[in-house]
Amino acid sequence: MVPLNHYLILSAVLFSIGAVGVFTRRNALIIYMCIELMLNAVNLTFIAFSKFLNNMDGHIFTFMVMTVAAAEAAVGLAIIISMFRNKETVNVDEINLMKG
């Protein structure tokens, strides 16, 4: 049996990789993918704790996170499409209308 620590460390590694991607990449689509990766890392933590505490509530939380991720992906990609239609780019550095 793999100890709980190792699941948590895997989750932390995936979360950090996702965070690095969000901060360093400039393509809006890849930033979205990194956010999905971070959400997945959190899901892994929920499931691991759920198993080790012998409590099913973590599964419900994961279910809710998946729902929110699906809603977020749909709305976010629609925003990216309308943004691309206006500015012909998905580079977040060139999208600076709100910068003043």
Partner: peptide
Amino acid sequence: VAVLSALIMV
């Protein structure tokens, strides 16, 4: 494999 693929993705 998961960590490697995540690194490739980023």
